[in-house]
Amino acid sequence: MSATLTKEKEILHVKDLQQYFPIKGGVFGRTVNHVKAVDGVNFTIYEGETVSIVGESGCGKSTTGRAILRLDEPTGGEVIFQGTNLLSKSKREMRSIRKDLQVIFQDPFASLNPRRSVGQTLEEAMGILNVVPKVDRRRRAVELLEQVGLKEEHIDRYPHEFSGGQRQRIGIARALAVEPKLIICDEAVSALDVSVQAQVLNLLKKLQKEYGLTYLFISHDLGVVRHISDRIIVMYLGKVVEIAEKKSLFDNPCHPYTQALLSAIPEPNRKKKKERIILKGDVPSPIDPPSGCRFHTRCPLATDLCKQTDPELKSLGEEHQAACHYAEQIS
C-alpha cells in the first residue's frame, strides 16, 4: 500500500489535542497542578495507511491514542474522524461511532475478561451495537478466529488457556468483529516475544489488505515501526517533533531528537561505523515543561532562540515536517 496512492481521503485529523491530568493535593483535593501529557498535537491520517507514533516512555503517545478513543476525556482540541468532531459528541452519540474506531491493547493478559470464553467475548463485541444479527454471531466468531490464525475449537476456551500471542490474536479478532475503519494499536506487540511479534505484525498487515483498514500504531520499538508503517510521527514530551514518510525519516531525520533516537538502533554490520548520539540528562517533567522548545535542555544544538520560542512544525519538502528552528540546516 503505497502511501502516495491512498493519500486522497482523510480519515482522522487531530487538531491541537491537549490532555492535561490534574494533580490533586491538600485536604480538600484541590487541583494544584497539571501533568501536561499531551500538549497541542496535530496530525492527519489518510485512509488505508499505517501511521506510527514513536517516542520514549511518558512522551504522551499512548495518551494520544486514549484521547482519540475518548477513553480519557481530552482537555482541549479536536479529533475529527470521518468528518465529525468526536469531542463534540455526547457519550450516547459517541457510542454509535465507536463501531468504526477500535483498539488493540498492549497487555494480552489484561485485555481479555478472564471469566468469559473467547466466543462470549467475540459475540458480545458484535452484539453491543448489533453489528451482526444474533443468529449469525457464532458463525462469524468462528470466521474471525480462523482469520486471525486460530481454530474453531478454540471458541469455547477461556483466556487462561492461551499463550500471549494467541491472546493477542483474540484481541485482534475482537477489534475486527465490528468491522472498523481505523484501529489504534497501542503497543500491540510490545509484550510479545520477538518471533511472535513478527507473526502478529504480518497478521495485521494481512488483515489491513483484506479489510482495507487504517492503523494508528503506537510503539516505542523502532524496528517494529520500520516494518509496519507508511508514515511516522515522533513525539517528545507531549509534542510532535517530526512527521515524515518512513523512508524519509529513517534516511534523513530533521530533528535532533529523531536523530538521537535513530542512532540508538543497533547496527548489525560491524564494519559500518555509526555515530551514537547520547543525550544528556533526563526527560524534563511534563508538569513543568521547559520554555521554548521542549527539547532544548538536552539538545546538542540548542541556542538562545530555542530557549525562548517554541518552534512550529514546518514543512521540509513533501510529507516531511519537523519542529526545529534549525531543521533545514540539520537535514
Binding site: 486514549r66 478513543l69 477513553l71 459517541m94 457510542r95 454509535s96 465507536r98 463501531k99 474506531l101 477500535q102 483498539v103 491493547f105 498492549q106 497487555d107 489484561a110 485485555s111 481479555l112 475478561n113 458480545e124 463485541a125 453491543i128 451495537l129 484481541g171 475482537r174 477489534a175 465490528v178
Partner: peptide, 14 residues
C-alpha cells in the same frame, strides 16, 4: 483499570 474494560468501552458498551 484492566484493559478489557477499556476494550468493551471502545465497543460502545453502556
Amino acid at each position: 483499570k484492566m484493559e478489557y474494560i477499556d476494550a468493551i468501552r471502545v465497543l460502545g458498551a453502556s
